[in-house]
Computed example of a mutant assay.
Amino acid sequence: MSKQQQINVGKISGVFGIKGWVKVFSFTDCKENILNYSPWLLKKSSETKSVNVIDGKLQGKVVVAQLDGITDRDQAASFMGWDIFITPDQLPKVAKDEYYWSDLIGLAVETNMGVQLGVVESLMETGANDVVIVKGERERVIPFLQGQTIITIDLDAGRMIVDWDPDF
C-alpha cells in the first residue's frame, strides 16, 4: 500500500529574532530532525505554500529555522500557526521489520484466528512500549511488540495480524 499522503511533522509556533527565523514545534523523534526535510509544505486552512529550509538549529529547547524568502520578523509572524507537512518519499528508508507510524495508520487489523478487529487509528508511546489504537466495533489498545502481539505487518496488503483475544 504505497501511501503518498502528506505527513504532519510540526507547526510554526512563533518568531525568532528579527531576520525572519521561525520557532518550530516539531513532532519528529529528536525534534531537530525536522530540519532534515526540505521543502516543507506549509498549510493553514485552505492555503498551502512550499518553502525550502535554508538553515536551522536547536536553540535551547526550541527548534528554529530560516525559510527561503522570509527575511524579516513580520513575514515570519505571518506563518505562525501553519502546519508543516512533508511527503513520505522525503523520509529515510527503514530497515526490514521497521515501520514509520504513518505507514501503519489505516491498516486492517485481524487476529491470527481471522477475527476482524478494525483499523489502526493511531499509535502512542506509553513509556514501557508503544501501543496500537485499533478502532472497530469498539476501541482496543494493543501493545506494539513485534513477534509477540504483532505477528505480521503487510503494508502491500494493508493488513496487520495480531495475537490478541478479541474479547479483550
Rank of each mutant, 00 (worst) to 15 (best):
V22Y: 01
D55V: 03
R138L: 08
V132K: 00
F27L: 15
G60E: 11
K31Q: 12
W40M: 07
N129D: 14
V22I: 06
V62H: 12
D55S: 15
A77Y: 00
K49R: 13
V109M: 06
D68W: 02
I142R: 04
W164E: 10
V63A: 04
Q59I: 07
T149H: 02
D72W: 03
S45W: 13
N112S: 04
K57E: 10
Y37D: 05
Q90R: 05
K23I: 01
Q148M: 06
K61C: 08
K3P: 01
G118L: 05
V162Y: 09
G114F: 13
E98I: 02
K44E: 11
S45H: 15
D29C: 04
D165S: 12
V119L: 12
M124Q: 15
M160H: 06
S45A: 15
K49T: 06
D103Q: 14
K43M: 12
Q6V: 12
V22C: 06
A65H: 01
N52P: 01
G20D: 00
S2M: 12
M1D: 09
F27T: 06
S13F: 05
Q6D: 15
D74T: 13
F168T: 04
L155R: 05
T48Y: 11
L104V: 08
V22P: 02
R73Y: 00
I151N: 04
N52V: 07
L117N: 03
W40R: 04
L145V: 11
D130N: 14
V15N: 00
G147E: 07
A157T: 08
I161D: 08
V64W: 03
A95L: 07
N33V: 03
L35V: 11
G114S: 14
S2F: 14
Q146C: 03
N33K: 14
A108S: 15
K31T: 06
G69L: 03
S2G: 13
L41D: 02
I18G: 01
N129I: 12
D89I: 07
C30S: 11
I105R: 07
E137F: 05
K43N: 11
S78C: 01
V132D: 00
F25A: 10
L58S: 10
N52W: 05
G127I: 06
L145F: 05
I12Y: 03
D89N: 11
A76L: 00
S2T: 06
D83M: 09
E125S: 14
G114P: 09
